[in-house]
Amino acid sequence: MLRSLLDTLLVARFELMRALRTWRALALAVLYVIALSGATYIYVRILWFIEAGLAETLGVPMTEKPGAMMDELMDNGELQRMIREMSGTPDAVEYLLTWPLLAVWGLWIGILLLPFLATSASAECISIDMSTRALRFEALRTGRAELVLGRFFGQVGLTGIAAICGLSGAWLVGMTQMVGNDPVFLATGLAALGLRAWLFGLPFIGLGVAFSQLTASPNWARVLAVGSTAGSWIAFGLAREFRDTSWGWLCDLVLQVLPQGWLQGLWTPNEWLISGLVYIALSLCAVGLGFVRFARRDL
């Protein structure tokens, strides 16, 4: 058992080291930084627009950067409506307003982007080494389960690093493009809610690793994984739409196994941990499903 654990960690460390040296990992991090920073910048402009409206209503002068009227902004119905729509959880608005607005925005963007980036990167982690047979060097020295789990944890680490880079970009935008942000509070908020976005990404990493075990073609694995991620959002939308019909039982079942079905918990103070545990379980299930084939296949 201890040996298994050690092997898994060794493979994970090596996978992470390797991933960090490929242009794909760099692309993942850069893409996430650009996307999150860009989206944060747009959000800052939206806040500035709302603040401008407020300033006009109150008859006070506008500032060059948003953030000076944060208390008034928090009470603004338009902003609260926006947060309600983003989270899909009306009860969570009050709780979410205790966090920096940029952190709430970061969580929302993370939920949208991380699954695609995570599946895209993780889909090749095994398939590429099956195609070049590089996997044989490790496969000789450890069990296939340790090999797969190690690769999965390596990808989890890689996505975590990409998330940290992206959140750092968002923090930088917040500190330079807004006024009144406490650097520590903003960093803590981004980290705490960023963690939840990363947890949401886990099942999608599992999905990528699952497809990576099924085929020796990294491109085909990526197409399947990204396609399934897109499909999961469509399935989520359909399940919510038809929940109140006679197919409700099926919709409920689909929502139980889809990561998106547990999304609401991420926006709440108490249930995010439960959602996180479900995401860990779902990710391991996805990896396990791929492993059923991988355990028997010729390498």
Binding site: M17, R21, D129, A134, R136, F137, L140
Partner: peptide, 13 residues
């Protein structure tokens, strides 16, 4: 231990 015939070593390390 085995030296496989045509397995690639990877380029990153």
């Amino acid at each position: 231990q085995v030296l496989p015939q045509d397995a690639d070593l990877g380029n990153q390390h």
